[in-house]
């Protein structure tokens, strides 16, 4: 028995390691599920989509708030979205929101994104309330995130990055942050963004992101 104890311990650890993670939609996910990751609430003038917290970006910098998990950059954002960018864009348009469509590859470093300003909030089962994007993502300069509906349908499809919400003005992301021009994060190092580990739940938690017109 003594000789087999380490083997038993290893076997137990292996079983623990291979156990599949739970990904069931709970009752607090506001009607969303992995099979139905995005809904439009016309009465409230907003849409809701399902995303998963990526724990890595609670401690490491990123330039993306939310990217579709099946996109090319699917694992590079604080919130890995289960909804596709084309559906996200379509849903914003169906709410009557106007896209800026002013960002190009040529002007990206000198122009900030236009389009209707969006109110973005995040909540999850067990959260005390819904938190604004400014509360769940930390800007190292302390500036507010100004999310605007950039549009970019053509380039989003062309590049297939999966970007829903970028943290500086972007010619690819459906929505992005008008506070900074493109390159502020990656090229010029003007700012660092990380998820707020003091507020957000642990890695893998499903969250509901609500997006509507900022009033």
């Amino acid at each position: 028995m003594k000789k087999s104890a380490p083997l038993l311990l290893l076997a137990a650890l292996a079983c623990l390691a291979l156990a599949p993670p739970a990904l069931a939609a709970g009752p607090d996910l506001q009607g969303l599920s992995p099979d139905k990751p995005l809904v439009v609430d016309s009465q409230a003038g907003s849409l809701r989509y399902l995303a998963k917290v990526n724990g890595k970006y609670l401690h490491q910098p990123t330039r993306h708030a939310s990217i579709y998990q099946g996109g090319k950059f699917g694992d590079k954002s604080v919130f890995s979205a289960l909804a596709k960018p084309e559906d996200f864009r379509q849903a914003l348009s169906s709410l009557g929101l106007k896209a800026g469509d002013n960002m190009t590859m040529d002007n990206k470093e000198t122009t900030t994104v236009r389009g209707d300003e969006l109110a973005v909030s995040v909540t999850w089962p067990g959260a005390a309330r819904a938190y604004t994007l400014d509360e769940v993502i930390v800007d190292s300069n302390g500036k507010p995130i100004q999310t605007r509906f950039g549009g970019n349908q053509g380039s989003a499809l062309q590049h297939n990055t999966g970007c829903l919400i970028c943290l500086d003005s972007c010619p690819v992301g459906i929505a992005s942050n008008a506070t900074y021009t493109y390159g502020a994060v990656e090229k010029r190092g003007e700012v660092k963004f990380t998820g707020n580990a003091k507020v957000l739940p642990p890695d893998g938690t499903l969250v509901v992101i609500t997006v509507g017109l900022k009033k």
Binding site: L16, A17, L18, A19, P20, P21, L23, N54, G55, K56, L58, H59, Q60, Q69, G74, D75, P202, D203, G204
Partner: peptide, 21 residues
């Protein structure tokens, strides 16, 4: 969190929980 996330990404196992990793 971070080393486990890096390992998970590197092994292309996005469904693996951090506890498991």
């Amino acid at each position: 969190v971070v080393p486990a996330c890096l390992f998970r990404e590197g092994c292309h196992l996005p469904g693996l929980s951090l506890t498991t990793t």
